[in-house]
C-alpha cells in the first residue's frame, strides 16, 4: 500500500517534471524557458522529498529556483533581446546527428538501468537526510571539500565581477 502511494506521488511529480523540462528545450522565448526551468526545479524538489533528501530538496528550492534562476532572469531582462534572437533555430545536419547521439545515450542508460535488476530501498535511519545528519557529515567527513567550496564561490564572485564589469 505504501509502495503504491509512493509510486502515485512519484508520477504526480515526474510527469509535470518531464513536461516542463521539455518546455525548456521547446520554448522559443528565453523567458518562457526560464519559467519552465523554475517549474522543473520545484517538481524535482518534490521528487527529492520522496527520496528522503529533505535538506537537498530545501536547497533545491532556495538556491536553484530562488537564487540561480533569479540571476538568469536578471540577465535575460538586462540583455533586452531583439526579434532576430528569437528566431527558430535551423538545425544543421551535424545537429540532427547530435540529437540522434543524445537518444543513443538514453538507450544506453535505459539498458543499463534495466539490466541492473530491481534496486530495492534499504530501510534508513529516522534522521536520514535531515539538516542535522547531513550537516554532521559535511563538517566531519567532507570538511575539506566544504572549505574548498567556499573558496570556489569566492573565486566565482570575484571572477564574475571582473568579467562582467566594463571598467574596474
Amino acid at each position: 500500500m505504501a509502495d503504491r502511494a509512493e509510486l502515485f506521488v512519484f508520477w504526480l511529480f515526474a510527469i509535470p517534471l518531464v513536461a516542463s523540462a521539455l518546455g525548456v528545450v521547446v520554448a522559443r522565448n528565453p523567458v518562457n524557458a526560464a519559467m519552465s526551468l523554475v517549474a522543473a526545479f520545484f517538481f524535482l524538489a518534490g521528487i527529492y522529498v520522496l527520496l528522503v533528501a529533505h535538506l537537498v530538496a530545501f536547497l533545491q528550492v532556495l538556491v536553484y529556483a530562488g537564487a540561480i534562476m533569479v540571476v538568469f532572469l536578471f540577465v535575460i531582462m538586462l540583455l533586452s533581446l531583439h526579434e532576430e534572437d528569437l528566431k527558430p533555430a535551423r538545425l544543421k545536419a551535424i545537429q540532427w546527428a547530435a540529437v540522434f547521439g543524445g537518444f543513443g545515450v538514453l538507450a544506453v542508460l535505459a539498458t543499463a538501468i534495466r539490466d541492473s535488476g530491481i534496486l530495492h530501498w534499504k530501510t534508513v535511519a529516522p534522521d536520514f537526510g535531515t539538516v542535522r545528519a547531513v550537516g554532521r557529515l559535511l563538517f566531519t567527513q567532507y570538511l575539506l571539500p566544504f572549505e574548498a567550496t567556499s573558496l570556489l564561490l569566492l573565486v566565482a564572485i570575484v571572477g564574475a565581477v571582473v568579467v562582467a564589469k566594463e571598467r574596474i
Binding site: L51, V52, A53, L55, V56, L119, H120, W121, K122, T123, V124, A125, F128, G129, A133, V134, L137, L138, Q141, Y142, P145
Partner: peptide, 11 residues
C-alpha cells in the same frame, strides 16, 4: 543514496 542507505550522496 536512498538505495544504499548512506548519506554520502546527499553531501
Amino acid at each position: 543514496a536512498r538505495h544504499q542507505g548512506s548519506m554520502n550522496g546527499h553531501a
